[in-house]
Design a binder for these strands. Structure first.
Lengths: 246, 246
DNA sequence: CGCTCCGTTGAAACGAATCAATGAAGGTGG
DNA sequence: CCACCTTCATTGATTCGTTTCAACGGAGCG
């Protein structure tokens, strides 16, 4: 049940029933117990938006105007370090809300970038804040979301970003976390991005990946199609073995 | 305003008014709006407890029976990795609650160990859960705590645990975060612990620290007293310069 | 006194970063 | 449609930093 990996899903299998405007899970929770009028007002306020791969949803340090619910696909949250260096600190999946922090904060904490095709709801932050303060149920739900995010962030970092752990192991762990629905398909990030997450130079990532490929631990799809560009095929068992090393 | 460093305070200056049983900040919030009867019942339920340096408050994976409020001092939260390796993932300070996660989870997520002398309130988790579900104000407060913890955890890791950042820089950043009240006193962890946080072998930590000492960036107190064993003296400005490097 | 734990220091081996060169793919404009 | 440029992944050779192994000294403790 890795919540980081959960969210990824193949681009081919869209879920139509969840794509109806305003009908994503977070929005449903926010609207729980609302009147028909309120729902109608909500639908006029909420934007539905689609983003293509590597498009930016919002930039860090800019003022928060809207909150984003991920209806389909995945986005990466990038933090800007004190020296301007960028780091992926979280990956959000279907059903997640980006920037819950905005309840208490005035500006975005991260830059958000689409991984593959993404569709989101954009909820005006004022409405979001009102909705939260008004409903205990919503607060508990957000509290739970926030706490699981906290635990995820900790495991994410403590397993991936430690240099005492061998780089092969860290990379294997990352690949496992990037699995699509815990299957054998692995979301394919660029080698620079993979390196930025586990703290390795892109060349090193390339070498380890080449090694994995040679040992059939992962397979790089061939061809120019989207499948080849967006996914690896992973031998989950072999990866898990490497992930357990040292 | 580094929230990680905030909590540390010298062991000499205790705050008597905050040490009254049930009179810590978190407990006050939990009791906001309660009747006198409820307060009386609360006081019979809550344990006051003191822990000495390096004592264990609770172990990871054991069932949650009580929630801990830090009334004085600091504790480190240690996560156990998939291969049994230990890592410090957070440091809690005065006014923090350990294991807010217990609202939704049945077992401790971390092992908690005292840094220096610590006093805490132990609140039965059942009471805690009831109190939370009953009060919107408490929920919002916890939500805020949880969200700031999330942001802290991210900055903590993204600044300290990346191997592309030079080890000197990472160690300098850590030392800055371990300052007592943002002063020149630095809480002195063991070299193994420092290494476990920034991902370095203890020998390497020792070497860098020796280098810092030679350049008067930090000073190791001499003698066998508690001061020498528990603190470094840091040249904040020099450390900040190193922390900005690359 | 001997024991262990912890920090220190040295020398050697290893791993990863760096520098550098090449090739494949995508986009643009002629 | 083909040159051109840019971006990205690959691979090799070298350098550098850190780990590892090992030995030593001090502090606390039975």
């Amino acid at each position: 049940m890795d919540p980081v990996a959960e969210g990824f899903q193949t681009m081919s299998e869209t879920a139509p029933e969840i794509s109806v405007p305003g009908k994503c899970l977070p929005c449903e929770v926010l609207l729980a117990g609302s009147s028909t009028d309120q729902r109608a007002a909500f639908e006029t306020l909420v934007d539905d938006y689609d983003f293509a791969h590597s498009q930016v949803l919002y930039h860090a340090t800019t003022p928060v105007d809207t909150v984003y619910c991920v209806k389909m696909g995945a986005i990466k949250l990038v933090a800007i370090g004190p020296c301007g260096e960028q780091r992926i600190v979280r990956i959000l999946k279907t059903g997640d809300i980006a920037e819950i922090e905005s309840i208490f904060s005035q500006q975005f904490e991260h830059t958000a970038i689409a991984i593959g095709d993404v569709s989101v709801c954009r909820i005006p932050v004022e409405w979001f804040r009102r909705s939260v303060t008004g409903s205990g149920q919503t607060q508990m739900w957000l509290l739970q979301k926030s706490l699981t995010s906290l635990i995820n962030a900790e495991t994410w970092f403590s397993q991936l970003a430690i240099s005492v752990t061998p780089s092969r192991t860290r990379l294997a762990r990352l690949l496992l976390k990037l699995r699509v629905d815990d299957g054998h398909q692995i979301y394919r990030l660029g080698i620079k991005e993979l390196g930025a997450i586990v703290g390795l130079a892109p060349e090193t990532v390339s070498r380890i990946l080449a090694d994995f490929d040679g040992k059939n631990i992962i397979t790089k799809y061939s061809g120019n199609n989207d499948l080849a560009k967006r996914y690896f095929l992973g031998n989950t068992q072999a990866l898990e073995e490497i992930a357990r090393e040292v």
